[in-house]
Computed example of a mutant assay.
Amino acid sequence: MSAKPLLVLLFAFMTTFPSVGIGAIVCPPMPDAITKVNKDVASDVKASVGTLGRLKAGEVTSKTEVVAKNLFERYPNADRLLVLQMMGSTYCSMLKDNTYISENDRQKLWAEFQKESFSFVNPGPPPPPRPNEKPKQKPAAASARELLASIGDTGWIFVGYFNVNSKLFIEGPYISVRSQFRGIPDKFVEIGNTVTLDVSRKVYLVDFRKTGAEKKLKSPISKSIMDKDDETGITLPANTKLTVRDVSEGKWENVESAALWIRVVAVAE
């Protein structure tokens, strides 16, 4: 991008996100350029930004980064500035509607959000290393804890299909059980187990695109068939270690195969 278009872009972004002043914050409006495609993005933005609402000052920066990166990966063809404007409008409105925080805290949270948002618009080149200083390595991929934190700290993973009579898997299992507490013989996985993903797995929450993490404890079995509305956009890589918090299985009537799902959280550090 040439210098002139970049300056125009930065000016538009900065006027959309006013700096924090002495008075109450002024929320930017939701962008007018909402196309049919962007309506899906806007819905997802609302659900994702909703997870920032319970954060305290000092926590917003890192979580904003996770949410923004997840949205950019989920919608690679979407205009990043438009996505950031949607995020800003949504988050600011949440802050103004929150009557349980002081105006001082509200401005601190808004300032943290703005600062992190600006970094996506004009990140700038990394500074050159000092003499005799080794260049910094690229940051590691977001951890399972960081990814799950952006959707309410938990999510559901499909393990596979098994025969209810033989207890043998027809498809999968896509996990390895690393530790068992009770070790019930006919149970492949139990609450409290530590598991490792054998392959990468998508993370689901029922109606995530509509209600965010509101139904995070609701089993996918209750919906029968999962669809796009249930996709969180997060895929955990193979070898990720997780702790099981719920186990759910279900099948259609007169069918011998059942689906097995687990709700997981990051392994305690």
Rank of each mutant, 00 (worst) to 15 (best):
K167M: 15
P123D: 04
A213W: 04
P125M: 12
S62P: 00
F17M: 05
P127K: 00
A149T: 04
D246N: 14
D97L: 15
T99C: 07
K96P: 00
R182V: 08
S179N: 07
D246H: 11
K115C: 04
L84D: 01
K187M: 04
L9Y: 02
S89L: 10
V37I: 11
R201W: 01
V244Q: 02
F208Q: 05
R54S: 11
A111E: 12
L10W: 02
S224P: 03
Y75Q: 09
V41Q: 03
R263F: 00
T90Y: 09
I22H: 09
A24G: 00
M87W: 09
N239W: 03
V26G: 07
P139E: 03
N163E: 11
I151A: 08
P123H: 07
S248E: 01
S219L: 13
P139H: 06
Y174M: 11
A78N: 07
T232W: 14
V267T: 11
F72S: 00
R209A: 09
N165S: 10
K216L: 04
M94V: 03
T15M: 15
L82G: 09
K215G: 01
K96H: 01
L236I: 08
T235H: 13
Y174C: 13
G155C: 13
K36Q: 14
M87C: 14
P127E: 06
I221M: 14
A268V: 08
K167S: 09
A68E: 01
K138A: 14
K39I: 06
P173L: 10
T16A: 11
V159F: 03
P135V: 06
I225H: 13
E249P: 00
Y161D: 15
P123F: 08
A78Y: 03
V164N: 15
F188G: 13
Y91E: 04
I225T: 15
E231M: 13
D32L: 12
V177T: 06
F188P: 12
I234G: 12
G233D: 02
Q85L: 02
Y161W: 06
D97M: 14
S89K: 10
P139N: 06
I151N: 03
D227T: 13
R209I: 01
P127Y: 04
A57Q: 12
S257M: 12
L81R: 13
N165E: 15
N254I: 12
E171M: 10
P18K: 03
A266V: 00
D105S: 12
M1A: 12
N254P: 08
E269W: 07
K4T: 09
Y174E: 07
V255C: 01
S179L: 10
D97Q: 15
C92L: 08
K167I: 03
F113Q: 07
P139W: 02
E214A: 15
R80W: 02
S179G: 10
P139K: 06
V83G: 05
R130Q: 15
